[in-house]
Nucleic acid binder design. Structure first.
Length: 734
DNA sequence: GAGTTTGAAACT
DNA sequence: CAGTTTCAAACTC
């Protein structure tokens, strides 16, 4: 479905991994899929251009359930003029971006380009890197696009970064039996296909394009190269942060895209960095596995002239800067703007002012339809040294049943630790934590994910202003990692993070109850440490000599790299989908149990509540479907769970009954404390008798034990009520 | 809470 | 890749 006014490029493609996402001329992007749960701003799609106000949607595609699309990447905006050199410089090749890697079809790229002689209209060239049909070498395919409206939508970006002010739709024909697929390139250059957000390369705006500032998306040293936006996928599961060794490795050196001869995979790094991962000799865009819908969208980002708060970590040579929303609103609002994710794609829009205005109004859809809007000074000086935009980290999770509660937005941005950064920092997303460029881990920083909620919790609900003030002085230990606050999220370490973390309670802030680690020797920098394995900072843990925090960021980064060197999949979820889909989870690596029969939590499969599979190398496994031992355990577990639930319910009921009563003894007129003074031995005895009678009655009715318990407890509640009533009557003389 | 068991991770 | 060691969680008492 070509967007109105957009050019259409038809691509014949054999691969059918794509569905369609259609953008509009307004720059909004709408996922063309019924499954899309766009909870807000979806109506914005199709909005025509306006000279007064333009909308640019920056978002990732919503995963499309029921499609085969697995990979949802990150829109990457690259200066087309640099594309070739980028490839050359990296010594690698980039071929598969939109999966346009077909080599034998002259129709590979049927371009229907608007007349370039569209006088007065800016002509923008987009470049898609694809495989050269004849040489199989990567090449940049420029696609000219003209703005049908002849309007300038985008102010100038930092040199090299551009936004194509209109959407281009690429229709893919996936072979004879495959339906036509559409790939749409949104106005930000986000190439999306079926929930996949794919790399788009765009040329710097040509003459006539009005500069705009945008969310900083550029490497510090080469401030225009890469934009990374959250990865998403269709699976309802949420999975741990994906660490990419190659990316990390590269990132530790140069902020460049990691590319491979055949594919670029946009992934997340350990620190939540959305990044790219190599994958060789594969023709399809690889899935970032099992990221829940909640993770699939770009977190709402509000550009604002936020207050910048520099955080000087004692003993650290880093200067951290974080943004705090200048809004005098509520904590919730700040939290929303900072860390909240949206379940479905909620397109954020950038509303550009009049041409040449250097203000951009960013409207960001928030969960629940709430919009947070703020104005931002958008001039992004070319001298800015922001190296990379690290967009929201995806929380770690491997439980398919995990609800998609908001996960924290985490952002990592290296910045120079000089005062000159203030201006550019003004565009940072609230909550961002910045690393100085001087760091040899520049390009990475650790973002205080969820810190707002944490602070709210720790500080017993401070106001926003307090939040802001205190944030600046918070020690790094208060910054937690990029992991999710999802109460049910479990992290990468599969088994250990199975369901009932911290007893299954959910923190008051809604943050996931994270089980504190107790590491003593690993400094929490090895995979032994669950926090580390989950891509999280230690926080409120019991570990000794912990280095899994901001204060040891370099060390931590090295450790991550080391882990990835050993095992590139080290930070991948251990539990993946089995052959039969989401409902058949499977331990990717399999367990290796010898003595536990795979029926204890030592076993990662068992702990993850999945059965052992052919991948397992366990001995004496009893964790299979027909295992009587397993069934027995399951029944026991179920019974226990029911019992706990009933007890909880009974407690709750009792509490509600008691809620109307004085919480502490009220002094009576004569100094007595009623009704408590009435609980004499006789009263207690009578109460016991009532309870016994109730127990007998329950037994006579042959109620299940749990029901009997409940009956007795309820009887006890009634007794108490009677006692209290009697006390009150006595007190009142009635 | 201390000690033991267990299996993944790390190491050789 | 296999064997061994280290480690921290799970478990037992």
């Amino acid at each position: 479905m070509p967007a109105k006014g957009s050019d259409t490029t038809t691509v014949k493609q054999e691969d059918d991994t794509s569905t369609s996402i259609v953008g509009t001329t307004a720059g909004t992007t709408q996922v063309n899929n019924n499954n899309v749960n766009s909870n807000n701003l979806s109506s914005a799609a199709g909005e025509p251009f306006s000279l007064i106000e333009k909308k640019v949607v920056t978002k990732t595609a919503v995963p499309l359930s029921g499609t085969s699309v697995k990979s949802v990447g990150t829109p990457i905006i690259v200066d087309a003029s640099d594309a070739s050199s980028l490839l050359a410089n990296t010594g690698q090749t980039l071929t598969n971006i939109v999966d346009l890697t077909h080599t034998n079809d002259k129709q590979f790229l049927k371009r229907q380009i608007s007349p370039s002689g569209n006088s007065g209209n800016p002509v923008i060239t987009k470049v898609i890197i694809k495989k050269n049909p004849s040489t199989s070498q990567p090449q940049a395919v420029p696609v000219q696009m003209s703005n049908a409206q002849g309007q300038t939508l985008f102010a100038s970006l930092p040199s090299g970064i551009s936004i194509v002010p209109q959407v281009q739709t690429v229709t893919q024909t996936s072979g004879i039996n495959s339906p036509t697929k559409t790939v749409t390139i949104s106005s930000q250059g986000v190439v999306s296909s079926g929930g996949k957000t794919i790399l788009a390369l765009q040329k710097t705006p040509t003459k006539g394009i009005v500069p705009i500032n945008k969310i900083p998306i550029s490497p510090i040293k080469t401030p225009t190269k890469v934009t990374m936006i959250p990865v998403s996928a269709k699976s309802p599961q949420r999975y741990p942060t994906v660490y990419s060794s190659s990316v990390l490795s590269n990132s530790l050196k140069q902020p460049v895209i990691t590319m491979s001869p055949s594919k670029v995979i946009i992934k997340q790094t350990p620190t939540g960095v959305v990044s790219l991962q190599q994958k060789v000799q594969t023709s399809t865009v690889k899935t970032v596995p099992n990221i829940a819908p909640a993770q699939q969208s770009i977190r709402p980002v509000t550009l604002s002239t936020s207050n910048l708060q520099q955080i000087q970590v004692p003993g650290s040579r880093f200067t951290y800067v974080r943004l705090v929303s200048p809004s005098p609103g509520t904590v919730n609002k700040v939290t929303t703007a900072t860390v909240q994710s949206v379940r479905s794609i909620a397109p954020a829009s950038v509303q550009a002012g009049q041409n040449n205005s250097n203000q951009v109004k960013i409207t960001l859809p928030m969960q629940g339809g709430q919009l947070v809007t703020s104005k931002a000074v958008t001039s992004l000086p070319n001298t800015q040294t922001i190296q990379r935009i690290l967009l929201p980290a995806q929380p770690n999770q491997n439980r398919s049943t995990a609800p998609t509660t908001p996960s924290p937005l985490t952002q990592i941005r290296p910045v120079p630790s000089t005062s000159s950064t203030s201006q550019s920092l003004s565009q940072l997303i609230p909550g961002a934590t910045l690393l100085p460029t001087g760091s040899n881990i520049q390009g990475y920083a650790l973002v205080p994910a969820n810190y707002v909620a944490q602070m709210a919790q720790q500080q017993k609900g401070p106001s926003v202003s307090n939040l802001s003030a205190t944030t600046a002085q918070r020690p790094p230990s208060d910054f937690i990692n990029i992991a999710s606050s999802d109460p049910t999220i479990t992290a990468n370490a599969v088994a250990r993070n199975a369901p009932n973390l911290n007893g299954g309670t959910i923190e008051a802030t809604g943050a996931r109850p994270r089980k504190p680690c107790n590491c003593t020797k690993s400094q929490c920098l090895k995979l032994y440490c669950d926090c580390f394995a989950n891509g999280e900072f230690c926080h409120n843990c019991n570990c000794l000599n912990c280095a899994n925090n901001l204060e040891h960021e370099e060390e931590r980064s090295r450790a991550i790299k080391s882990c990835l060197d050993r095992n590139p999949m080290a930070f991948h979820p251990k539990i993946g989908k089995g052959k039969h889909g989401v409902n058949h989870r499977k331990h990717n690596k399999g367990c290796n149990c010898k003595r536990s029969g795979c029926l204890k939590n030592y076993c990662e499969c068992y702990e993850a509540k999945i059965m052992c599979s052919s991948s397992c190398k366990c001995i004496g496994c009893k964790n299979f479907e027909e295992s009587p031992e397993r069934k027995t355990l399951m029944h026991l577990a179920d019974a226990a769970e029911v019992r706990v639930q009933q007890q909880t319910a009974a407690k709750s009921k009792f509490s509600s009954q008691m809620s109307g009563l004085p919480s502490k003894p009220l002094p009576s007129s004569n100094g007595e404390r009623l009704p408590y003074t009435l609980i004499t031995a006789e009263v207690a005895e009578a109460t016991c008798a009532c309870l016994l009678a109730q127990a007998e009655e329950a037994e006579r009715l042959k109620m299940p034990p749990v029901v009997q318990e409940r009956m007795i407890i309820e009887e006890f509640g009634r007794c108490l009520m009677q006692i209290i009533e009697s006390a009150n009557k006595t007190k009142d003389g009635t």
